[in-house]
Design a protein around this nucleic acid. Sequence first.
DNA 1: TTAATCACCTGAGGGC
DNA 2: TGCCCTCAGGTGATTA
Length: 271
Amino acid sequence: MPELPEVETTCRGISPHIIGACVERVEIRNSKLRWPIPKTIVTLLPGMSATSVLRRGKYILIQFDFGWLIIHLGMSGSLRLVHKSVAPDKHDHFDIYFDTGNALRYKDPRRFGSILWTTDAPANHKLLKNLGPEPLSNDFSRDYLHAISRKKIQTIKTFIMDGRNVVGVGNIYANEALFDSGIRPGVGAGKLSLRRCEKLTTSIKHILQKAIKKGGTSLRDFVNSDGNPGYFQQELYVYGREGLPCKLCNKPLRSKFINQRSSFYCNSCQR
DNA sequence: TTAATCACCTGAGGGC
DNA sequence: TGCCCTCAGGTGATTA
């Protein structure tokens, strides 16, 4: 389940292999994703070179000579670099073949992801223009979180998972960051004190940085650009551990549904 | 305007 | 072994 660390891991993995490489051919095997893959890129991209690979939230932005590919991995997507001779699997939707002999291959069994093309700056794209700050940037601070959460009646977990408030925090890392900061997921966002906002922003940054170092979390689908899993799941304190003892106080962890998402917490360590 | 809910999709896992 | 059902989850669209 790709969240920010998985997307960052993917960007770092593909970047050195495709920057400067020229597109020879594009193949769309199955255009059905959240939105259809634009067929125009089959004729547009060949002859262009990739010039940069960036990340904005959970979006991967690949810059070419005359436009950008905006890629979202959805729930089950992955981008891998393979040799062009490697045969595609069942759910490999899309390939970009480069003159280096490599192909950038997009796989997404559940088809919640998306591949879009824009010639405008990605920041102006409707999917990106309303996104909140990057959690690892200085813009995401105690004061910012405290200011935007005033009078909000949503739970804090729903609030930090909303990309308009801060990008890249999905269910796994929201659960882990809230545990790390000692805040129950069901607490109202508007009720957090400045001190607790500071703890939470610190925890979100800490958890995400740790996950990036470990190559992300592989629960079911995620593999990095080499086709290998991430290892952060071995560091999870609460996610998916309902009924198991808390690693800090040994009491059984609980779970509840918040906004249609499984939430895991320790009734003793989190208040 | 805000918050909640729905819909999309397929593989994994459990029960029978 | 095979069938059926439930669950998982990110996010745009829709509804309240």
